[in-house]
Design a protein around this nucleic acid. Sequence first.
DNA 1: GCATGTGAAGGAATTCACAGCA
DNA 2: TGCTGTGAATTCCTTCACATGC
Lengths: 196, 196
Amino acid sequence: MPLYLRGSLELATQGADSISSQRLADHLGLTPWLIRKDFSYFGDLGKRGVGYDTRTLAVRIKKILRLNVDRRAILVGAGRLGSALLEYGGFGRYGLQIVAAFDRDGARVGRMIGGVQVEHVSGIATVASRGVDMGIIAVPEESAQGVADALVKASIRGILSFSPRYIVTPARVKVITIDIAVDLARLCYYVAGNSR
Amino acid sequence: MPLYLRGSLELATQGADSISSQRLADHLGLTPWLIRKDFSYFGDLGKRGVGYDTRTLAVRIKKILRLNVDRRAILVGAGRLGSALLEYGGFGRYGLQIVAAFDRDGARVGRMIGGVQVEHVSGIATVASRGVDMGIIAVPEESAQGVADALVKASIRGILSFSPRYIVTPARVKVITIDIAVDLARLCYYVAGNSR
DNA sequence: GCATGTGAAGGAATTCACAGCA
DNA sequence: TGCTGTGAATTCCTTCACATGC
């Protein structure tokens, strides 16, 4: 559903004042009635006969997603993938920011990547006081659980993991895993198959 | 559902001969009955009172996912993210392989990354004859649609895109989009919120 | 007239409960 | 006794159709 935020922001910056569920659906690869249904859960967002005001829509969705205040995240693992994330500018428009990066490898510590300086992993414990909400794990899979444990100890409340492993955390810590190989395998199923 | 393949492969390499739906569920963060239901669609996979044989399970799932023959993919965009993907060794265990990489930037062309040599994007047209099934897009978002068009022309049947844009393709070409910022925003919703 | 908002219908996925086999 | 396989019940999400308001 953050998809909607992306859509409305995109179209807002493209200069459109108002947008119909039809156009938004085309833009995101969804159906108009799905969008209307979802939006209806949050009260009145649109004007009948006109559409949704892109600017207010973006603001409202941000509030719904609790993105109205800036959210801080830290990154663990400053390898290729980690560096790519640090230099990726796409988080800012959602009010998301990576404020620190950590790595185990001494050779990487101290480097500046994407505006933040890489610190040694032992420093993770110190972020508890920095108002950080989330941790991003971009380390080799065998280290992922250990890093997650450290993040939990540092009072982080959510983890985005790129490791193909199920990560165990207390119930209060939400984990979202992005497993690229699994996604590619999924694609493969569609490609090679006939049905479904 | 490729998740299941991951799970069975992992546990197979860990030396377990047999596994119960319960343990597999714990391992993947799912429920036992969901796994049993899903497996039941494909006929008899397990032995009652015992569990599933890890080795045969992996083989069966590979066949179901059409991963029994090796699948080839090409990558477009050899920046940080693209390089990370090329050097990521996790595809092999699913029978997936990145056989070529392309970039628009002349400075990157010719480099060897993760065992493949970066070619100029103009060469995409030539892959049609190389038995490639899928294309991976790791380019800046404004170039994504153009690359997708080139891939479609090259007879590719599936696209895995890391660009935060909806990509238009003919119906025969399946697209899966991984939008990291959207996933992080989703996580944020769980973290900051109370309900759901 | 045009586009949203929403109750009702329809379908798909999940959960349950238990029968069947080692 | 332990664990799979599966029909029934449930819940959730999607789709439809139309009333409502600009």
